[in-house]
């Protein structure tokens, strides 16, 4: 046993220094040099102040903005300090209540909308910070926002399209709309 102790301790310390210090520091250095924006969190800077990240969703509940997925993060929705899904099982009454609550809120904001509601708009994302909704979910909300902001629907459609990404190479991921990007573009449009 004693013959094993010295190599065990030495290897443990030395390999820890290599994999636990040298390696992450090297990656940080390369990241800063090659991909500085991504390494720092893909922040969106407006007037010199960070207003969010292109990768992290924000909570929207006003009629003038596109709404994102439901969020089950700790304490309040889209709390980036406590990412989490709802973990509600398919039979859990709390899941059905949450879906009903979202349907009611959508209908209250837009009583005349008779379109079927897309599934992603009434369910909580895995991270609680999903930055995207499906193009169907954007279409569902389009007329409400066009009316609330007095913007022609055609113009709004172009804006949605500009913030939409397709499925990569026909196989990876899903078509999606970046909600924060779209809403910032909306505000910029009105400010002009």
């Amino acid at each position: 046993m004693k013959t094993l102790l010295r190599p065990a301790i030495s290897l443990f310390i030395l390999l820890s220094l290599i994999t636990g210090f040298a390696y992450p520091l090297l990656v940080t250095g390369i990241g800063k040099a090659v991909f500085p924006d991504q390494a720092a969190g893909s922040l969106i800077i407006q007037h010199g102040k960070p207003v969010g990240s292109t990768l992290i969703g924000q909570n929207f509940s006003g009629p003038k903005y596109f709404w994102g997925r439901l969020s089950a993060t700790g304490r309040y929705p889209y709390n980036a300090g406590a990412s989490s899904g709802s973990n509600l099982g398919p039979l859990n009454p709390a899941l059905i209540d949450a879906v009903k609550g979202r349907i009611d809120a959508l209908k209250a904001a837009d009583p005349n909308n008779m379109l079927p509601i897309p599934a992603d708009l009434v369910t909580a994302s895995g991270s609680g910070l999903d930055p995207h909704i499906s193009p169907a979910a954007a279409d569902y909300q389009l007329l409400r926002i066009a009316t609330a902001r007095s913007i022609p629907a055609e113009r709004l459609k172009a804006l949605v399209a500009a913030n939409t990404e397709g499925r990569q190479w026909g196989a990876f991921g899903e078509p999606r709309v970046n909600v924060l990007g779209l809403n910032l573009a909306l505000d910029a449009l009105v400010a002009k």
């Binding site: 899941l95 599934a119 009434v122 999903d130």
Partner: peptide, 19 residues
């Protein structure tokens, strides 16, 4: 709620999944 798969949405069981 529309859970069908179309060109504009993944549909299906989206609870706990990322768009």
């Amino acid at each position: 709620v529309d859970q069908s798969l179309t060109a504009l949405q993944a549909g299906g069981n989206m609870e706990g999944k990322e768009t």
